[in-house]
Computed example of a mutant assay.
Amino acid sequence: MSREHWEPVTVFTGGLKPLPPEGQMTGMYKVRRDTPVFCDIEGLRGDAQGDRRVHGGPDKAVHLYPADHYTRLAELMPMASNLLLPGVLGENLSVSGLVESDVCIGDVFALGDARLQVSQPRRPCWKISHRLGVDAASRLVADNGLTGWYFRVLHPGDIPPDGALELVERPSPGMTLARLWALEQSHRPSVEEVNTLAEAIGLATQWAQRLKNRADWLARNV
């Protein structure tokens, strides 16, 4: 396959801080890194997640959010436009020119010494609304498919600041994250489509099982 590059990649990490207005601890407040950061199967060294039940872990080790989405988010939420800059949604990686319709489940990327595999979309949660101070923010992100995605780490290594993200393997061509999210948002997708995406190589086990359960329900309730 052809090898594609996107650069530069901006790298962010952050510790835990209270999230207004109620003070829940969150790892959404990130700082841009200007030196190499080591990445292992749990994510970037020096990074933290506030609720490990829904963020972090091997299938959600590194979060990428497309930089190009911020223009659209500012159109949808002009009242928060001053905040809508890369890093504000808690992403670890930011890159231009790469969005969900370009990326397939299971894609493997090289970034510095690390090898990262696309595992699942990010489900927008209520913390996005609190972070931006816009009640509808999480829903707008979900409804417009501006989700970003998570990587698992296949090979640990140093990730440089402003490095090149390189696509090196695509085991599930055609099974884009945009296609998966459209299915997720669909009221009644076809059983065939659900089963097809459930079998995508590299899809997080939790997502695959939920899709299989949904396909079974749809088949029983024609």
Rank of each mutant, 00 (worst) to 15 (best):
M175G: 07
H63D: 02
T71S: 12
D113M: 12
K30L: 01
G145K: 05
L19I: 13
L111D: 06
L93M: 12
R214F: 04
N144E: 15
F109K: 03
S129E: 08
V153G: 06
S172Y: 03
I105H: 13
D135G: 13
R210I: 11
Q209C: 14
V191P: 02
G57N: 10
V194I: 14
G133C: 01
N213F: 10
I41Y: 14
W126T: 03
D107M: 08
Y150G: 05
N82C: 10
V11K: 10
L165T: 02
L154P: 07
L64P: 01
Q185D: 12
R131F: 04
S2D: 15
V108F: 12
R3D: 14
D59N: 11
A114Q: 00
I41L: 14
V88H: 10
Q206N: 12
N195W: 07
D135W: 02
T26L: 05
G43W: 03
V95N: 10
G27N: 06
L154Y: 07
G90Q: 00
N82G: 10
P173N: 01
R210Q: 15
W126F: 14
R220C: 09
L84A: 01
R32S: 04
A142R: 04
R53S: 14
P8G: 07
V62I: 06
G90H: 10
P21E: 07
A200Y: 00
A204L: 11
R3M: 13
W217T: 11
N213V: 13
H55S: 07
G27Q: 00
R53Q: 15
L218N: 09
A61Y: 03
S172Q: 08
E42H: 15
S138E: 05
G133L: 02
A74E: 04
V99M: 12
R170S: 13
L89M: 10
A114D: 00
L93T: 02
H155C: 04
V108Q: 12
A178V: 00
A67Q: 09
P36H: 01
W126D: 11
G23P: 03
L85S: 14
S119E: 13
L111H: 05
D68Q: 00
L177I: 13
T147Y: 10
G133P: 00
I159K: 03
P66S: 03
P21D: 11
P160Y: 08
D59E: 15
E42D: 15
R131L: 00
G46A: 01
K60H: 14
V62N: 02
V9S: 14
Q185W: 06
A198N: 06
H187Q: 13
G46I: 05
M28T: 05
R3K: 11
D162W: 09
Y150A: 01
L203Q: 02
A80W: 10
L44R: 00
V37M: 12
G90V: 01
L180A: 07
R33Y: 05
V108Y: 09
V191G: 12
K30V: 02
M28G: 06
S172G: 03
E7W: 07
G57Y: 06
W126S: 08
M1F: 10
